[in-house]
């Protein structure tokens, strides 16, 4: 039953979970569960699932892909997130923010756990780098992409999520609502994250 899942998350916070680092993620985990517990029958899927899915799936994959760098993995994350959403009672108006935050957290947990599978996609990414023609891609090498993600995993969780949400196209107001920040502090949070990641990139670049 779900007892330990709920009671444990509340009572013991970070207790049993590698990945549930302290209050934020534990709190998030419980928050994310909220919808799931309010279902009345196990098989019920919310009626607006398909509409929301078709509208927001690319966004959710984009959020997870920015964290993970792998579209295959990002699509797996998106499936999980929508499955949760399908059983939740999250108000339709909050769906976009909820889905984005859930995708970011799930992807960050996966990134952090280091259990990244070697996928076909990563091989094809190598191949793509070899023949890449896009200027931005040529500048940003695969190595840099890898480093930026390592650094992303080490950022304070709120900064990492704010950064990814913003770069995935959510507005400042949306990021603020989704992360329970004041709209004024979104810019500060995003800027801090960018500054830290850029420093990381430059540090490596200059040491090469």
């Amino acid at each position: 039953m779900e007892l330990i899942r709920h009671g444990g998350a509340r009572a013991a916070a970070a207790l049993a979970a590698p990945g549930a680092v302290g209050g934020i993620s534990a709190g998030r985990a419980v928050g994310r569960e909220r919808g799931a517990v309010s279902r009345s029958s196990p098989g019920a899927v919310r009626a607006d699932l398909e509409d929301v899915f078709r509208r927001d799936y690319p966004l959710v994959v984009g959020v997870a892909a920015r964290v993970l760098g792998s579209r295959d993995q990002a699509e797996d994350v998106a499936q999980d997130v929508f499955l949760s959403f399908g059983h939740s009672a999250v108000p339709a108006g909050e769906a976009r923010g909820w889905l984005s935050v859930a995708a970011a957290h799930t992807a960050l947990n996966l990134l952090r756990s280091g259990r990244r599978r070697a996928s076909r996609e990563e091989f094809s990414a190598v191949a793509q780098d070899a023949v890449v023609s896009d200027v931005a891609d040529a500048v940003v090498t695969r190595e840099e992409r890898r480093r930026v993600r390592t650094a992303l995993a080490q950022l304070p969780r709120k900064q990492a999520v704010a950064l990814v949400l913003r770069h995935s196209g959510l507005s400042y107001t949306e990021v603020a609502a989704a992360l329970d920040l004041s709209p004024g502090s979104v810019g500060t949070t995003v800027r801090r994250a960018e500054s830290a990641l850029r420093k990381e990139l430059n540090r490596h670049a200059s040491s090469l």
Binding site: R66, R71, A74, V140, L163, H167, R198
Partner: peptide, 9 residues
Amino acid sequence: ALDSALAPQ
């Protein structure tokens, strides 16, 4: 720079 580094393909 970060937007490029994070951009999904």
